[in-house]
Simulated assay, not measured.
Amino acid sequence: MAKRLLFIFMVFILGDIYFFQAFTTVFHTPFLHNAYWCIDLSLLIGVATLIFFQRQGKDIQRQAGDLITFFLIVFIPKLVALPILLTEDLLRMARGFPPRNIYLSEFVLICAALIVLVIAFGLTRGRHYYRVRKEILSFPDLPDAFDGFKITQISDIHSGSLSDVDGVRKGIALANAQNSDLLLFTGDLVNNKAAEMEAWISDFTLLKAPFGKFSVLGNHDYGDYTRWDNAELKASNLDRLKEIHQEMGFKLLLNESIKIQNKGASIALIGVENWGKGGFHQYGDLGKATSALPAESFKILMSHDPSHWDRVTLTHDQHVHLTLAGHTHGMQFGIELFGFKWSPIQYFYEQWAGLYQKQGKYLYVNRGFGYHGLKGRIGVWPEITVITLKKSVS
């Protein structure tokens, strides 16, 4: 982690130096030059201040989100400009380093301005720019009664970040419009406290599915990222969160499984508590959750963190056909165009968005319904997933 952060810092410095050269090629006013460096200085002061307050034990999540947003606005345009200006330098080197081409510098600044507009869209409209992503998955051992069975998955609501009632209701209506048989929520209902969800209970109660609504907990749901006066308050917060799941009509699965029955046949729906790599708590117990299931049963697992699939599910003695996860949000920032997919989160999670398959087992990682940290989404839009199960010929 430290090496990756150092790499990001070095790229930022390099991009800053090059972008300033393009800036001064176009703008010659000392006032603008000073303003350029004041923005950078403000960013560094913000980072230092947050580090100080974090060491003092203060809750800095809201301020950290603002700083992340500020960083992206400052950093991303420079990052895009960097390869263009580096290429120009290679050409300048061959010609004895003449002055920078003003037209190329203008082009770089125009590109930077366009990128800022894209970021502005992501921080406003992008928060609720919901995309429906559909997958059809075929299995030879799927019971005939479930051929064509539709599942809607949402994940990572993060109600503590939500503020636009109409935007949220648009996402809920879109989820209901899929007319799926089953609705599954894969964790992170809140940022920190159950109280964040109180105002949204009536809205999310409107989610409907004829075969039921089921959910699991995510890493944020345990209240681990905020300060509590005592352990009893933290425990009561989790108890209230569990009650809210019930009030919204969700059956919360805590290291357990249930049968979804249809026309005399059944599939197993499994839900484990959060289990994550890299310092995240590992409350999930897949062995306990599957202990009463026959080996031949068709199994769908809800597990918030996709690292659980690699580290536990793939090698588990019970064959889990499909795992549904969330957690990564696709970092709420990236590029997804024409089948190409990139986000910085891929350097931390091998499976971070969309469908994956190994050893005849599937994992789908939902990009999230809400947002946290970065107060919006840029390129990686909020998602409603629809998975249709099909019976394949063996």
Rank of each mutant, 00 (worst) to 15 (best):
F333G: 00
F333M: 01
F333T: 01
G334Y: 07
G334E: 12
I335Y: 03
I335K: 00
I335Q: 00
I335F: 08
E336A: 05
E336R: 01
E336K: 00
E336L: 00
L337W: 08
L337Y: 08
L337A: 09
L337I: 09
F338M: 14
F338D: 14
F338C: 09
F338V: 10
F340V: 13
F340P: 01
F340L: 15
F340N: 04
F340Q: 09
F340G: 03
F340E: 08
K341F: 09
W342S: 05
W342Q: 02
W342T: 04
W342C: 05
S343V: 03
P344N: 06
P344M: 09
P344H: 04
P344F: 09
P344V: 14
I345H: 04
Q346S: 14
Q346L: 09
Q346I: 13
Y347D: 07
Y347A: 15
Y347C: 08
Y347R: 03
Y347N: 08
F348E: 09
F348W: 00
F348S: 05
Y349V: 14
Y349E: 13
Y349F: 15
Y349L: 12
E350C: 06
E350K: 15
E350F: 12
Q351K: 05
Q351N: 14
W352M: 08
A353R: 00
A353P: 04
A353N: 05
G354V: 13
G354Y: 14
L355H: 14
L355A: 11
L355S: 07
Y356F: 15
Y356T: 12
Y356V: 14
Y356I: 15
Q357L: 13
Q357W: 04
Q357P: 00
Q357K: 09
Q357T: 15
Q357S: 14
Q359L: 09
Q359N: 14
G360F: 11
G360L: 05
G360A: 10
K361E: 15
K361T: 13
Y362M: 05
Y362V: 07
Y362G: 01
Y362T: 07
Y362L: 04
Y362Q: 04
L363E: 12
L363R: 02
L363C: 06
Y364D: 05
Y364P: 02
Y364C: 04
Y364M: 03
V365W: 08
V365L: 08
V365T: 12
V365H: 06
N366M: 07
N366H: 06
R367N: 06
R367Q: 10
R367Y: 05
G368L: 11
G368C: 12
G368A: 13
G370L: 12
G370Y: 15
G370Q: 13
G370H: 12
G370R: 06
Y371C: 06
Y371F: 15
Y371I: 12
H372P: 01
H372K: 01
H372V: 11
G373E: 06
G373I: 06
L374N: 00
L374R: 02
L374Q: 01
L374V: 14
L374K: 00
K375H: 04
K375Y: 02
K375I: 01
K375C: 01
G376E: 11
G376T: 10
G376R: 02
G376M: 10
G376L: 07
